[in-house]
Each structure stands twice: as structure tokens, then as C-alpha cells.
């Protein structure tokens, strides 16, 4: 009886020990990342202004556009004074920064809107696109990776791995164009671009969902190879480890061994990948949104760049940097959360 009681006690203790999450460590890591992230962000934005100062870009021309060709010199001078053109870039950076902290990121010249409004309006659609694509890529990637890892070197493994390598070499905008040709033109089952049908005046769920399928699918396919290959590698490695051997020795079913034991430890390295893939996701979104005229942030970036809309570009660069830093933080938090051996102090 005493043996049973002590076993129960140990079990209960193990259960509570497992359930206790490292909140303190996670909070400390977050604070530390913010402390290193702020100077990093300052460096990036300062670099942006330094680059602009070194470039042949003329802010007055950029602000006035074609009107600069016909405006008189006095107006241009006043504009230049207002924009702080004569001042060194560090001063202009400081002005921009203090204004940004008050919530004023300036006005976009190409979209004729405050920059903050542009970002707020479009962030939703970009986030929707990226989230759906990411979820699909993770789900399908995990499935294919496990199937491929089940028999390394087998026919399925070679097919999946080969396709993954080929896909990872294919430019995403090219895939997007071919998808438009095949699904929108050849089969005519999905719309070729935009957020809603051109005739509709309001945004409905079904309409958006229909328009989301192609861009999200292409973005997911472009992110898929990495997940497949890393999950496959993680599971293959895990299958050679002692816990899996132990599970097999206990006579557990192959499916249980694969999913409950190998996949669980094999997925860990992939978790860090999820957060660190944010730059690639932004890059992919940049190209996919352009092909499909998806009204997201990336689409605005390209339009801002083509028209040299400095205010919008600077804000978007800062925004993307924040997203990347958050992704890295998320990756480390998830990793520490799922792997009890990881010490947050080491990160």
C-alpha cells in the first residue's frame, strides 16, 4: 500500500512539475529581448535615414511629385525648410523618431493617407494571408515530413524530398503566375487576384475566402519545402534515439512510436524555425501580394518603393524589423515552453 501511495505521490509530483510553466524565465527573456531590440530598432531606422541621405533621392521632389516641375523656387524652398532637408540626417531621424513616438509617422505621398492609417488598414489583410499560409504550410509540412521519415530512402521519401528541393529553388512569383494561369485562366475555378469581386461594394466572408485560396496556397507552397525537410530530418534523427528504441521494445504500435515519440521530439527543432521564418514569410508575401494585387502591407511597400515614398518606406522597414524580432522571440519562447531541458538564461 505504501509503495502504491508513494508511486501515486511521485506521479502527482511529476504531473505538477510538468504543468508548472517557466513564467518567470519567459518574462525575463521577453524583457531582455526588448532591451536589446530597442537599440537594434534605433540602429536600423538610423541606417535607413543615413542611406536616404547618401542616396540621390530628393525629399522635396519626392513630396511634391510632378508638381515640383512647375512650382516656383520660393515654394520649393519653403517645402524644403518644412521637410528639414538642409539638416543632417541624424537630426531628421530624431525628429522622425520623436514624432513616431507620439503616433505620427508622417503622410504617404503615393497613397495620400497618413502612414499609420495605411499600415492599420492593410496589416489585417497581410496578417490574414500570412496566418492562413503559415498554418497550411505547418500542417501539410508536418504530415509530409513524417510520412517521408517513416522509411528514409524509400520511394515516398525520395519523391517528397526531391519535390521539396525543386520547390525551394522555384521563385515564388513564378509559382504564383503559373497558379494564376492554371487555376484562374485554364480551369477558371478561382479568381486571379484582388480581395473581392470587382462588382461587389462590400467585403463578405465567402468572397474573401474565395480570393484567399490562391495567394495563401502559393505562399504556403513556397514555405512548405523547409518545413517538410526539417520535420523529416528531426523525425529521422529522433527515430534513432533511445526513447524511440525503448518504445519499440515495449511493443508499442508503430504509429504510436512515430507520432507520440519520434514526432514529439523531432518537432522541437522545427519550432525554432517557425519564428525565424518570419523574414522569408514577409519576402514571400511581398511577391505574392504583388502578383495577386492583394491589398496588404507588402503591396503598399512595392508601390511606395516605385514612387520613392520615403515616409511610408521608412515606417514599413521599421515595422518589418519589429515583426522579425517578435518572430525570433516567439520561437525562443515556444522552444523553451515545449522543451523542459532548455534554460531561458542561455538564450
Amino acid at each position: 500500500m505504501s509503495a502504491a501511495a508513494s508511486t501515486a505521490a511521485v506521479d502527482a509530483g511529476a504531473a505538477t512539475a510538468r504543468r508548472r510553466l517557466p513564467w518567470g524565465g519567459m518574462a525575463r527573456l521577453t524583457v531582455r529581448r526588448i532591451l536589446t531590440g530597442v537599440p537594434l530598432l534605433l540602429t536600423v531606422t538610423l541606417g535607413v535615414f543615413a542611406l536616404a541621405a547618401a542616396s540621390p533621392f530628393d525629399p522635396v521632389r519626392g513630396y511634391a511629385g510632378d508638381a515640383a516641375l512647375t512650382a516656383d523656387q520660393e515654394t520649393l524652398d519653403r517645402l524644403a525648410a518644412n521637410l528639414g532637408v538642409g539638416e543632417p540626417f541624424a537630426v531628421r531621424w530624431w525628429d522622425w523618431l520623436t514624432a513616431a513616438l507620439r503616433g505620427d509617422l508622417g503622410d504617404s505621398t503615393v497613397l495620400r493617407q497618413p502612414v499609420l492609417e495605411v499600415i492599420a488598414e492593410r496589416a489585417v489583410w497581410s496578417a490574414l494571408l500570412c496566418a492562413v499560409a503559415f498554418a497550411v504550410a505547418v500542417a501539410v509540412g508536418t504530415l509530409l515530413g513524417v510520412l517521408a521519415a517513416r522509411r528514409p530512402g524509400g520511394l515516398l521519401d525520395r519523391t517528397v524530398t526531391g519535390t521539396a528541393y525543386t520547390l525551394s529553388a522555384a521563385p515564388v512569383f513564378w509559382l504564383a503566375l503559373l497558379a494564376v494561369w492554371f487555376f484562374a485562366l485554364r480551369l477558371d475555378v478561382l479568381p486571379a487576384g484582388g480581395l473581392t469581386d470587382s462588382g461587389s461594394s462590400y467585403v463578405s466572408f465567402g468572397d474573401v475566402a474565395e480570393h484567399l485560396v490562391l495567394p495563401a496556397g502559393v505562399l504556403a507552397v513556397s514555405q512548405l519545402p523547409w518545413f517538410v525537410l526539417y520535420v523529416r530530418q528531426g523525425v529521422v534523427d529522433a527515430l534513432a534515439e533511445d526513447p524511440v528504441r525503448g518504445a519499440r521494445a515495449r511493443g508499442l504500435a508503430e504509429r504510436t512510436v512515430l507520432v507520440r515519440h519520434a514526432l514529439r521530439s523531432g518537432l522541437l527543432p522545427v519550432l525554432t524555425l517557425i519564428g525565424s521564418r518570419v523574414p522569408e514569410l514577409i519576402t514571400g508575401a511581398l511577391l505574392v501580394e504583388t502578383v495577386f494585387s492583394w491589398p496588404g502591407i507588402a503591396d503598399a511597400t512595392v508601390r511606395a518603393a516605385t514612387a520613392v515614398d520615403f515616409q511610408l518606406l521608412a515606417a514599413l522597414t521599421a515595422f518589418a524589423t519589429v515583426a522579425v524580432l517578435l518572430g525570433n522571440l516567439l520561437a525562443d519562447l515556444l522552444y523553451g515552453l515545449f522543451d523542459p531541458r532548455v534554460d531561458f538564461r542561455d538564450m
Partner: peptide
């Protein structure tokens, strides 16, 4: 630090930025 700062800006976005400013 410089490497970290550059690595935290998506590469294509940085390219877009540079090319936009320098034509």
C-alpha cells in the same frame, strides 16, 4: 551588432528600399 541589425530586416525589403532610393 551590425550583423544582427542587418539580419533583422527582411533582405528583399532592404533591397527594395535601396533600389528605390538609388534608382
Amino acid at each position: 551588432r551590425v550583423v544582427d541589425a542587418l539580419a533583422s530586416v527582411p533582405h528583399l525589403l532592404l533591397g527594395v528600399f535601396v533600389v528605390a532610393l538609388f534608382r
